[in-house]
């Protein structure tokens, strides 16, 4: 079955590594990165982007508005 595909872009410098998007993601796409950003936080990144459905849960709970979400409907 063709599924909806999504992609997220995280503003790494704005992210404060609060982990809320990691918990909110229903398909466990997001993880915190090992690298450290300019503010000293471990920013979130899409570790398994192939599972992303573009549901916007991560962007909805992100307090710092770091996440932009794109969605691609399956082609008929």
């Amino acid at each position: 079955m063709a599924k909806v595909r999504g992609a997220i872009v995280v503003d790494t410098e704005r992210c404060k590594g609060c982990n809320l998007c990691v918990v909110a993601c229903p398909t466990k796409v997001i993880e915190l990165n090992d690298i450290v950003n300019g503010k000293g936080y471990h920013p979130a990144f899409p570790a398994r982007h192939e599972d992303c459905t573009g549901c916007m849960n991560c962007a909805t709970v992100c307090p710092d508005m770091c996440i932009t979400v794109y969605r691609l409907k399956p082609q008929k």
């Binding site: 595909r5 999504g6 992609a7 872009v9 573009g54 916007m56 962007a59 909805t60 996440i67 932009t68 979400v69 794109y70 969605r71 691609l72 409907k73």
Partner: peptide
């Protein structure tokens, strides 16, 4: 996906 898909949240 970013190039062809729809921007749903910014």
């Amino acid at each position: 996906i970013i190039k062809t898909g729809e921007l749903v949240f910014k």
